[in-house]
Design a protein around this nucleic acid. Structure first.
Lengths: 257, 257
DNA sequence: AAGTGGTCTAGACCACAGG
DNA sequence: CTGTGGTCTAGACCACTTC
């Protein structure tokens, strides 16, 4: 038919449906035509129609339910920007090249402030660890001070003394089979307390990044709280977000080079 | 067959293949059996086999290429955590409830520091805007000071004076059709300069969050640089990351409530 | 009972990569 | 040229929702 764009029919069909949704032809909250109806309208097989609708689902334009139909969720494809990230490790941004030196470990009642963060009853005893993070073996000034609180259910976690490059949440996954389903991260600016300044070899009152991560299990319970305080000049937090398109199926972008 | 888990065959098949990849039966970098071979092995149709392999692709375990085959990429499914985010707006985390008050706009040569950030020649003239961000109409102390630099190609951008709740990058998309393909964000801790402290009604030297966002177009060129400085107690940056599983097809999590 | 989407079969033709 | 994965058809049965 055309020399320029011999796109698969299901993509053409998807584009048509997207346009019609944007134009308001199918009101938000209402039902799209059934698969059978679309097969007739477009003279295509059910397979082709379903492949097309799959694209609409990926774009967040519609939702489907057996026995009901295809419901329009939005008139605009959600512009999904996606953080470029391989895993939790990218949150730390340096796990591989740094080590956590644990200074002390003890069971201790939670401060009210930490209890609030952990959504736990104040005064409940959690495993509390204090440490310093260093660049791989280097004896220079540490990158940050770290406080880690671990839910009492996992207080028997092993191998947490000394220096290690393995993050604590991974230990929990290994030893208890408790997998992390969600991480909540908060970043603030704070001034270094005299105690922190002493440990870091920095100046009290100097600006620092305060990073708190809550690790939640599948049931939404906090199993670990980790708080790091980085002097301003020793760390900055970076993230990259890319626009997410419908996953390129055809031979397009090569992910090789 | 079984009362407990009548999973679709393509899911069972996918699970089998995942196990075999993890066990090392198909070495990383090598080719999986062809679709036809799998159809014979499992006594399933090509459709079922392809649905199963689709899951492997989603998990990042294999890549496929017509004319070549299905290549094993990794022995472990990449644990993808995904930031919960609707769009760029979530980066600002408050666009809807706040307004940017522009104090002045001028063309000016870039500082060397900004030029480095923008990956632009030092001294090149960009459109430079200074402003304060307020809570919706409230006259209280501003949330932050903001400096925005816009690539000279878009210096004719309109309606940037006064107060507005519309982010500048959206103006660029509307007026020039230049869509933002990537956002790079960096967060640091800084001490407020006397000038910033004056504008913010805060104390000089107090800790603050320094947030810099680079907006890039499709070609990877920086089209806007936005730097915000938030006094510590007026803002914190939050993000949530969820473990990404193979997209639930069946009637599982309801996204309604 | 009727209709929906979810799963599955058994074919087919194509563009592309490789020998 | 053969074989790969990508696309597509015309059927089918099922679980589920709705009436």
């Amino acid at each position: 038919m055309s020399l320029i764009a011999p796109q698969p029919r299901y993509l053409q069909l998807a584009q048509t449906l997207i346009s019609e949704i944007e134009s308001g032809r199918y009101p938000v909250g209402g039902l799209m035509p059934t698969e059978f109806a679309l097969c007739e309208q477009f003279g295509a097989s059910r397979f082709t129609v379903r492949e097309a609708i799959k694209r609409l689902v990926d774009l967040g334009l519609v939702s489907r339910q057996a026995g009901v139909g295809t419901r329009v969720l939005s008139t605009q494809p959600r512009t999904a920007y996606r953080q470029v990230m391989q895993g939790i490790a990218d949150l730390q941004q340096y796990t591989a090249e740094t080590e956590l030196e644990i200074l002390d470990v003890e069971m201790a009642p939670l401060d009210p402030e930490i209890a609030a963060l952990a959504q736990a009853p104040a005064g409940q005893s959690w495993l509390h660890m204090r440490g310093l993070r260093h660049r791989e073996g280097v004896a220079a000034a540490p990158l940050c001070v770290t406080e880690i609180y671990i839910h009492p259910a996992f207080r028997s976690v092993r191998e947490v003394g000394g220096r290690s490059a393995v993050p604590v949440y991974l230990r929990l996954e290994e030893q208890f089979g408790e997998s992390v389903a969600e991480v909540q991260q908060q970043i603030r600016a704070v001034a270094l307390t005299p105690e922190q300044a002493l440990r870091l070899g920095a100046e009290a009152g100097a600006p620092a990044l305060w990073i708190c991560r809550l690790y939640l299990n599948r049931r939404g319970e906090v199993i670990e709280v980790a708080i790091s305080v980085h002097p301003a000049e020793r760390f900055s937090y970076s993230a990259v977000f890319r626009r997410e398109r419908a996953p390129a199926r055809g031979p397009e972008g090569s992910d090789e080079a």
